[in-house]
Design a binder for these strands. Structure first.
Lengths: 128, 128
DNA sequence: GCTTGACCTTCCAGCGACTAGAACCTTTAT
DNA sequence: ATAAAGGTTCTAGTCGCTGGAAGGTCAAGC
């Protein structure tokens, strides 16, 4: 099938699918007219990638996960360790954002937000 | 003062400080030898930028905040609305990460992580 | 046969916020 | 005189796409 149909089935933009070919993630066959020709297996992989990306996995991780998926003799521990490591990244990011949120929401709450110039937000940024 | 000292005082890497000059955030004077010459006011602005970036503000927001800081006739509502909008972004990001975390932690918990190939993580990525 | 429009192709450039590295100049200390 | 530590500019790379230009192909309608 053409890239448009593959895009529809996988939920990924055609541009992204072409990019995934560029970086050798999913390389489709080519029809006689030069059009990309995606197999059911290809679109399956694209869907896999879409879901992995939606969970925040980096492209490198996606590649590793796809390789493991293709490898019938994989150990689930390899998959799990990639996922666990990514989970730790997510936790760290949440914690960082939570700290930002705490500081910033206090500042926003303390700012009058009127037409006067006095502003604890600026004061805090300026004075540390 | 030289860029190294400005870096030490502001806590920003010299590379970053040069970048901030490139994008016209903080433009220092130049000494006779061509070295950048940062004033106390410049380093103050760099510190401001460091704190704003640490709170996750985009460079565009930082520029706006710095302009407001320089403008004695500002309205605190302008500052507050930038901060409030960023706060909403942060909340959205936290929520997105929380959803990823929930899905992924369930998957990780359900994976044996041994040397067998069966893996609910891969299964979920493959089947949607 | 011709046109229209939807679809496909390649290639190049840009986003954000730096960061790395090369090649070179200046200052300071020995 | 020399070496180390700092400074300068410039180019290019990171990540994961995304937009746009310039053109090729295909199916439908007239």
């Amino acid at each position: 099938m053409n890239i448009g149909e593959a895009a529809r089935r996988s939920g990924l933009p055609a541009k992204t699918i072409r990019y995934y070919e560029d970086i050798a993630l999913v390389i489709p066959a080519r029809a006689a007219n030069g059009y990309r020709d995606y197999s059911a297996s290809d679109t399956h992989k694209l869907g896999f990638l879409g879901r992995a990306r939606a969970l925040g996995f980096a492209i490198g991780d996606c590649r590793a996960l796809l390789d493991l998926y293709d490898d019938g003799a994989r150990a689930s521990s390899d998959v799990r360790s990639i996922a666990a490591s990514h989970l730790a990244d997510i936790e760290q990011k949440i914690e960082d954002l939570r700290e930002m949120h705490e500081t910033l929401s206090d500042l926003v709450a303390s700012c009058a937000g009127d037409d006067r110039p006095d502003c604890p937000i600026l004061k805090s940024l300026a004075d540390g």
